[in-house]
Write a protein that binds this DNA or RNA. Sequence first.
DNA 1: AGCAGCTATTTGCTTACCCGCATAGTAAGG
DNA 2: CCTTACTATGCGGGTAAGCAAATAGCTGCT
Lengths: 125, 125
Amino acid sequence: MNTPVLAGSPATAEVPCTHLDTTARFFRALADPTRLKLLEFIQRGERTSAECVEHAGISQPRVSVHLSCLVDCGYVSARRDGKKLRYSVGDPRVADLVMLARSLAADNAAALDCCTRIPGEGEQR
Amino acid sequence: MNTPVLAGSPATAEVPCTHLDTTARFFRALADPTRLKLLEFIQRGERTSAECVEHAGISQPRVSVHLSCLVDCGYVSARRDGKKLRYSVGDPRVADLVMLARSLAADNAAALDCCTRIPGEGEQR
DNA sequence: AGCAGCTATTTGCTTACCCGCATAGTAAGG
DNA sequence: CCTTACTATGCGGGTAAGCAAATAGCTGCT
């Protein structure tokens, strides 16, 4: 399967890592443009999967995985409505977090662009 | 997809999609336990690279890269003091962000753990 | 039950990014 | 200058995680 974010850490598997590891995973869930897009989309109103698929512009399976991840991580909740599932954001702190991040990111947009690639090794294709 | 990000009103307004990539990158910078650890370390007081290396417990080159990333992303700023560079956190919003994330992550720790695991019982690949 | 629509999982490939080790570059001080 | 201390970059390897496409599994309606 392909649970998007989060999988076992490389060298730090069973370390009594306090919140660091958890928080890092938490952030990683938001570190993907697609999930971020979906989250903000759902934030603006309850959405069905189909709407999410269309909004995200990627395949349904991918969206399904991303949504599952967001649900698992507690960002959004799912509710069945007939044949469909409807997703919504339950925790108001999520909005705060995103807003705060957007504010900071906007202020450092130029620098962030510069930081696109950390090491700067072979890339391209 | 690579939009240059046009900085709009931070804490207000509608949300264009422009910032998505930038914000994702912003979160990605915090999606690593090591960087998170360094950030919180620096948050508690100005630190030299050497102190960061010792605190992080990884090689100096790695720490250098992580610190560069944090600086590039605007989380911390560097100041030269004699031969050394001293790092500190300038923006109070950083602390807010981390605290908010920790709060949310703590509440969803179980779910996050679940998302961490690989679905199949056995091995992955 | 059987069909149709919606959602989740599997497979295979590719890229991103973590690490340590070795080394190159640069700013201070003698 | 030249040396030394500090910081940054290059290389190679390994793992996580992204995507598309095909497919399996549910759920509700007729």
